[in-house]
Design a protein around this nucleic acid. Structure first.
Length: 505
RNA sequence: GGCGCUAUCGUCUAGGGGUUAGGACGUCAGAUUCUCAAUCUGAAAACCCGGGUUCGAUUCCCGGUAGCGCUACCA
């Protein structure tokens, strides 16, 4: 295979929603270009997009950039073969379509949509192939030109003359279609808007695209496009068709399956490197067949079209989560704390100003809960027990401390509380000493000792290690945060008052 | 209806005419920890069906079935 001057493209429509399937297509193109040190071109298919929806393009580019892709030529950075927006290439399409008509490869079609729909329905009813009859094909050129000049609406159709279309698909191998299954396809709609199958071919050729890597829903479009290449006498690029991504119910992955857009993954706090790794694994595997965790550099190094699987894959959020957890743990705490800020702020757990000491403290917070979450947006919930203290909940979880059968628990909590209140400077070693003393005094140890203390301190019966929580409480209390974080002593004081620890038994 | 694409554990996949069919996520069990999580160890778990070809098919061929796509003046 000719591997010099590789040029690939990603040509999305700006809809304000980058589906993971499209993201994966973009990623595979990008990986292929980077692997071969070729060019990655971004082209916007916006012929149908309202001018007022221009903000969608901005959003699209931002999503792709967040995802970690960069492009050598595109609507924002330009390039030698622009413009890179289809809406700005209308003249190009017009010129090329007229050329085909003049050469006799295409013709004007005056059939109305209603007429065509009628024929279609009839063919379907009669069990025939619903296909354009070719009625306008035989109109004389002069006649057609006259009607067009008179302002009659006309579409332009391509004359299909070939018996068969075949190509060597880089993923699927030899693929072919018989020529008689496609009716003469529309090149330009009567409104003057070019049809997809025409515009892509013109663009891909004019932009010197060497490899077209796209979704396999385009396989059946390929013969139509091949026909356009042939009509122009252009050499077609190589094609590689990627399988579809399905949801758990084996239907195409769509919005109703949950998070399916780059934006939604970003909102969940999924790391782009995790998503890149996961999406690449969905349909591609490294040469050793075993490695699962591959950095983007490694993906670029190893990527190759011939390890792409042909069958559709079901999107598995659990596996993405697993990769995301991995990449989160790889991140330096400073970085992680920074990324956590928006999520914590939104949950109302922290507020400005986030001074350096506060950020340092947040690193401890993030570290304490990092292995309890799949992605960053779960962090506020996991860390809530640091920021909020619900004394009633603590009481409920511990049951009635007044009752006789809880005498042991009561004793533990009493002693811990008074020692905690006496301790002027609490850190974990000191806390540990206190518990040791209480253990000696009460004979309680292990779970019996720790559990009541944990519940009284956090109002939850599970959570991060007390070893991590104690310093977080103490340092947090010293920071004068808004809302404030309460110290261990403070929590115990309130608990003992509410539970009447010292007034019974 | 026609045409096309696809088919290995629940999921992502490796493999390939003779293998104990490999890895990963998830699940379950054990270890560990004050708890949950994390971690470590282990277990259960797959070649869609039928017919060829062959000494031998999960692998190659054909058919079926199922899923998906296209069948547009959608992209």
């Amino acid at each position: 295979m000719e591997m010099d001057n590789i040029r690939v493209r990603f040509a999305p429509s700006p809809t304000g929603y980058v589906h993971v399937g499209n993201a994966r297509t973009a990623l595979f193109n990008w990986l292929f270009a980077r692997h071969h040190k070729g060019k990655f071109v971004l082209r916007i298919e916006d012929t149908d997009v309202e001018r007022s929806e221009q903000r969608f393009e901005t959003q699209l580019l931002e999503d792709l950039r967040w995802f970690g892709l960069d492009w050598d030529e595109g609507p924002d950075c330009g390039g030698p073969l622009g413009p890179y927006r289809q809406s700005e290439r209308q003249d190009v399409y017009r010129k090329h379509s007229v050329e085909l008509v003049e050469q006799g490869h295409a013709y004007y079609c005056f059939c109305t949509p209603e007429q065509l729909e009628d024929e279609r329905q009839q063919a379907l009813k009669a069990g025939r192939q619903p296909q354009y009859s070719g009625r306008c094909r035989t109109l004389s050129k002069e006649d057609a030109a006259r009607r067009v000049a008179a302002g009659e609406p006309a579409a332009i159709r391509l004359k299909i003359t070939d018996w068969a279309f075949a190509w060597n698909d880089l993923v699927h191998g030899e693929t072919s279609f018989s020529g008689d299954v496609i009716g003469d396809p529309i090149l330009v709609r009567s409104g003057g808007v070019p049809a997809y199958n025409f515009a892509v071919v013109v663009d891909d050729h004019l932009m010197n695209i060497t490899h077209v890597i796209r979704g396999d829903d385009h396989i059946s479009n390929t013969p139509r496009q091949l026909a356009v290449y042939r009509a122009f006498g252009w050499e077609p690029p190589q094609f590689a068709h990627l399988s579809t991504i399905l949801g758990g119910d084996r239907a195409r992955l769509s919005k109703r399956h949950g998070a399916t857009s780059l934006e939604s993954f970003r909102g969940l706090g999924i790391l782009p490197e995790a998503l890149r790794n996961y999406l690449t694994l969905l349909g591609w595997s490294p040469a050793d067949g075993k490695t699962e965790i591959l950095s983007t550099e490694e993906l670029v190094r190893q990527f190759s079209l011939d390890h792409i699987i042909k069958s559709a894959a079901v999107f598995d959020q659990e596996k993405l989560n697993w990769l995301n957890r991995h990449y989160m743990k790889q991140l330096p705490l400073t970085k992680l704390a920074e990324m956590a800020v928006p999520f914590l702020t939104e949950a109302g757990l922290v507020s400005e100003p986030l001074t350096p000491p506060v950020m340092e403290w947040l690193e401890l917070v993030v570290e304490a809960v990092i292995n309890k979450i799949d992605y960053l947006s779960q962090l506020p919930d996991a860390a809530r027990l640091i920021f909020e203290y619900d004394v009633r909940k603590a009481g409920e979880l511990l049951g009635t401390v007044e009752s006789p059968e809880n005498a042991g628990t009561r004793e533990v909590l009493r002693r811990v509380t008074s020692k905690l209140l006496d301790a002027c400077q609490l850190d974990y070693p000191r806390f540990r000493e206190i518990l040791k003393d209480v253990q000696k005094e009460t004979g309680k140890k292990g779970k019996e000792l720790f559990h009541p203390v944990r519940v009284a301190l956090t109002a939850a019966d599970s959570g991060p290690e007390l070893e991590k929580l104690i310093p977080i409480f103490e340092k947090g209390a010293g920071l004068k945060l808004e809302p404030p974080v309460r110290s261990a002593a403070d929590r115990m004081r309130e608990f003992s008052n509410t539970a009447h620890l010292f007034f019974c038994g």
